[in-house]
Design a protein around this nucleic acid. Structure first.
Lengths: 225, 225
DNA sequence: CGTCCCTGTAACAGTCCTGTAACAAACCCG
DNA sequence: CGGGTTTGTTACAGGACTGTTACAGGGACG
């Protein structure tokens, strides 16, 4: 599977980019789209992608120049060129500019996916939930805060996952308790405060902003600032 | 976290729609079913759904036409196409008509649920209430005035939301108190003035027009000028 | 069968919100 | 202009809500 991969599509024809977007998203990838070379460059600099699909013919800044700039700035994200042209000369130029592969029109989606996989040649990453500098590996149940491993008990972990899955949302005390203590829905509600306390003690280092915020009279929320 | 979502299924084969209905309802979603495109269109126009599952092959009006009409009328509800066909041509056409994802037969319910969640996650922006330069994020309970974050207590927030939900309307003092102090309906009515004062102190910067207006002898109203 | 650690309860401490009260200001109307 | 009514402001005490710690029971595991 290819799920979890972040793909940047730089393509000015919406009917093509939209199709690619849908297809790749359908296969579980996260997609961003840029409609010209400059926007693509900005995107690529600001975010980390696993692969970039780059059309040659683009307004504002063409694919070749964009690629050249990108490499010049040390961005090594693999690039697959999308092109109508099929001449050897162009292929050579693209590869010299730092492309990793290319695909000629008309695009066959299955072939494209195969090439993406080939280019990545990476193991499927575990599903990871990230909020600020918190990382929850949902496959291994490992937890890291600011790179440091954190050991959690089952209850603590479930609670943290629920908070992280609803990051930024304010979750009411009752909703959290219903969800995390569903086997025994009328536990002493104070147990929630206790476990929030456990999590804070394990997650927050003095000096860092505290990750779990109290919203007095309502509940709790997990957020950055 | 799919509970509470409203799903419209447009599918003419009862054995399929019934199965989907049971499965999704079992997961806590609210289901409506329409058996042809025209009925589906009517449903979709009359009610608000969180996602529409749309079969391509339908009597009376096929899925593509229904989708096109829907989009034409400005309905932006996410649509997942259910289809037996798997050709690129069809995909392109659906995409252009405004579909958000698709699923090919035979349907796997878990996959369908995953796609529903994905679509909801992608599409659903936080519900935000805007009045003039005031922004209330009802999901995160964040409040901004003219871009600046404002910290409110629970009572203050509830009061402001009520005012904002009825912006421009003049709300009588009794109505506000009945609503916001419903647990204890015979508080000293002065408490309302006090809390209006708190809100003004936090929301208004000297120089800005004051957001909450007094309507003497009646109550208060939230409006622009 | 024993140990260890997780879990939930309980009791207490601390914080911050809330509503009251008293007074000041603004407004209305004669 | 002046009295009366309505609204605004401030200070404050009580209390609701949250945080913390200690501990007993019980389950998992060897």
């Amino acid at each position: 599977m290819t799920s979890g991969f972040r793909v940047l599509i730089v393509e000015d024809d919406p009917s093509i980019s939209r199709l690619l977007e849908l297809e790749l998203r359908h296969r579980g990838m996260e997609i961003q789209v840029a409609a010209d070379g400059l926007a693509g460059l900005t995107h690529a600099e600001r975010h980390r992608h696993d692969v970039i699909l780059l059309d040659i013919l683009l307004p504002v800044m063409d694919g070749e120049r964009m690629l050249a700039r990108l490499r010049q700035q040390g961005v090594r994200t693999p690039v697959i060129m999308l092109t109508a042209r099929d001449g050897d000369r162009d292929k050579i130029r693209n590869l010299e500019a730092g492309a990793d592969d290319y695909l000629t029109k008309p695009y066959n989606v299955d072939e494209l996916v195969a090439r993406i996989r080939a280019v990545l040649r990476r193991v499927q990453p575990d599903p990871v939930l990230r909020v600020a500098d918190l990382e929850l590996n949902l496959a291994t149940r490992e937890v890291h805060r600011d790179g440091a491993a954190v050991e959690l008990t089952a209850r603590e972990y479930d609670l943290l996952v629920f908070l992280a899955q609803n990051a930024r949302q304010v979750l009411s005390r009752t909703r959290i308790i219903e969800r995390i203590w569903s086997e025994n829905p009328d536990v002493d509600p104070n147990v929630l405060d206790v476990y929030i306390g456990y999590l804070r003690r394990k997650l927050d280092r003095p000096g860092q902003p505290r990750l779990i915020q109290t919203v007095r009279g309502v509940g709790y929320t997990l957020r950055e600032s």
